[in-house]
Each structure stands twice: as C-alpha cells, then as structure tokens.
Amino acid sequence: MPEVVDHVAVARLYGEPLFAMPQDLYIPPDALEVFLEAFQGPLDLLLYLIRKQNFNILDIPMAALTRQYLSYVDEIRTRNLELAAEYLLMAAMLIEIKSRMLLPPKKVAEGQEPEDPRAELVRRLLEYEQMKLAAAKLNEVPQFGRDFLRAQVFIEQSLQPRFPDVHVVELQQAWADILKRAKLVQHHKISREELSVREHMSIVLRRLQGKRFVEFENLFEPEQGVPVLVVTFIALLELAKETLIEITQAEAFAPIYVRLAYTPT
C-alpha cells in the first residue's frame, strides 16, 4: 500500500488503486485527440460555420468567415497535409472573394446591379445544402441489410410426388360434363338395347392395356349415345371397386386420369 492512502486514485490497474501516473508510461501523440465535428469537405465546413454563427447565407461576412475557416485549416495542416490540400484550395477562393470585395465594383450598364463576388460561392453552398438534406432524408428510409432483413423459410419436400385423392364430387362434375356434351351429339332414335356391364368392363380394361394413363373423358364415346355412356361409367365404378383400376388427379380441377392398378409380381 502507498504511504498516503487518503488521496483520490487517478486510475485503477487490475483492480488496484493507482495514485500516480507511471514514469515509463508511453502515450502516443494522437491517442488523446478528440474530433468534435467531422466534415465531408470544404463546403460542408463552410456551411457549418455559417449556420453555427447564424450568418445570412445570402449576405456572408467574408472577413469573419475567412478567419474562422483559416483557423480550422491551420489545425488540420499539422495533422494531415494531404487532407488539408482540398481545404487550402477553398481558403484561396475565400481570400480572393474577400480581396475582390475590397476593390471598387466594376462599372455596369445603367439600371443593372454590380456583380457580387460572393454569388458563385452562395450558389454552391445552397446547392450543397439541398443535396445534403436530400441525402439525410434518403438515409432515414429503411434499408435492406441495415434496418431489416428478408425472412427466409426452408420447406423440405418429399421427392416422391403425392397425388391428391379424387373425391366423389369431382367424379360427379366430370360425369355431368360428359353428359352435357353427349346431349349435343345424341340422336333422337328410340331403340331397345341390352348392354352388359361386364362386357364394358372388359372393353375398358382392353383400352387401358399397355398404356400408362388414359384421360377419364377419352374412355367415353359420346356418339354411341347416353345408354352406352351410363354403362361405361358403371363399368368404371365397378373396376375401381374391385381395385382393378386407379383413378388419379394431379391437383384440384386438373384432368382426371385412369390406369390399370399396379399388381406386384
């Protein structure tokens, strides 16, 4: 412990109070520098000085502005000569404007006002301020990657497609469409005909033989009349009941397909 313990410690090192700075402590020259304002260029610095002193931008007091500007340039020249080059160019422009204002104005035609040496500088400052305000508004707009991220969801899908089951209502609708078309081509001839469901079951099986899929509508021949269509439809229902055929549909409202049932060997 130090001899004098009632003094206030200047720092703490590994939790222990430090009452005096070490003699061998090295502090780099730039370590304790604090930049109160950061400027994007000479125009940004000029605009800052004008707004800070509440100067009228249309009637700039060049003497006061030039003096404040040169004091800042002298400060940055001691630290960064490359950065000061751009500011020195603006300083030369300010001195030129100041010197031109000390000279008598040039004679102009009667009724015209003499040109103000500050006009070009004022125009550049107003344009820069307008662009700076526009950039600040754009920066307030939410940006992707800074203010929000795009949501991503990964869904694992099976490699084997699974077709939805065919419902009775869909079969009824498909059957109603076939009947509707059959009425457009039917013949108004009344005759008695005996039709066999088993025979049409065999006809359907023969038509499906050797084919991967057959569209439901292609199994009917509307020109044969409504009785044949009815028996063919009943034959399809019987074949489906006996699991001799499979009726599938890729998605809702998609065409209905019929194929022979798979029989493992």
Rank of each mutant, 00 (worst) to 15 (best):
P227W: 02
L103Q: 15
A136C: 00
K211H: 13
L58V: 05
L25E: 08
V228G: 01
A182Q: 09
R79V: 02
M1T: 09
P22E: 11
Y128F: 15
P142L: 07
L244M: 11
Q130C: 00
F55M: 15
E223V: 13
Q40Y: 06
E215N: 12
E242W: 10
P29Y: 11
P42F: 05
L236S: 00
L46F: 05
V4Y: 10
I247Q: 01
M1G: 13
F19W: 14
E217G: 06
Y262D: 12
F39H: 15
H200I: 03
P17G: 00
F233Y: 14
I50E: 03
I247R: 01
Y26W: 09
E246P: 01
P22L: 04
D74N: 11
M1Y: 07
M201E: 15
E199K: 15
R192I: 13
L126Y: 03
E221S: 11
E199A: 15
T265M: 08
P255W: 04
A31C: 06
L36R: 11
S158R: 02
K183P: 00
R146I: 12
L94W: 08
E96W: 05
L184H: 08
N80M: 01
E96F: 07
V108K: 08
Q209E: 15
L47M: 02
L49Q: 09
P255D: 10
Q68F: 01
P29H: 12
I27S: 03
V73L: 04
L149D: 10
G225L: 03
V258R: 00
F233C: 03
K106E: 14
L208R: 05
L81T: 10
R118H: 00
E75R: 10
